[in-house]
Computed example of a mutant assay.
Amino acid sequence: MVGVQAIETDHFPPRETTVVVENDLAAPNKLVMHCQSDDDDLGVSNLSSGEKTSWSFKPNIFGTTLFWCNFNWNNLVKSVDIYNAKHDDHGECITTCLRSVREYGFYYYNEIDNQWYKKYTW
Rank of each mutant, 00 (worst) to 15 (best):
Y120Q: 02
P14L: 09
S100P: 01
N23H: 08
I7N: 11
W116P: 04
G50S: 10
C69K: 00
T18W: 00
N23P: 03
N23K: 10
N60Y: 03
W122Q: 03
V32M: 10
V21D: 02
N72M: 11
L47N: 02
E92W: 06
M33K: 02
W116L: 09
E8H: 14
K86V: 11
W122G: 00
I61N: 07
I94T: 11
C35Y: 03
K119H: 11
K30P: 04
T53Q: 12
A6D: 14
F12E: 05
D89W: 04
T53V: 14
K78W: 04
L31V: 03
Y104S: 14
H87K: 13
Y104G: 13
Y107W: 15
N60W: 08
N110K: 03
F62H: 10
H90I: 09
D88L: 04
Y109A: 03
Q5S: 13
D89C: 08
A27D: 10
N84D: 15
F67Y: 15
N70P: 01
V4C: 13
T17P: 01
M1I: 14
G105D: 02
V44D: 01
M1R: 03
K52F: 09
I94R: 08
D10V: 10
I94E: 02
N110Q: 08
T95F: 13
K52M: 07
S45T: 09
L25C: 04
N60I: 05
N110D: 15
W73G: 00
M1W: 10
N46T: 11
S54H: 12
E103I: 06
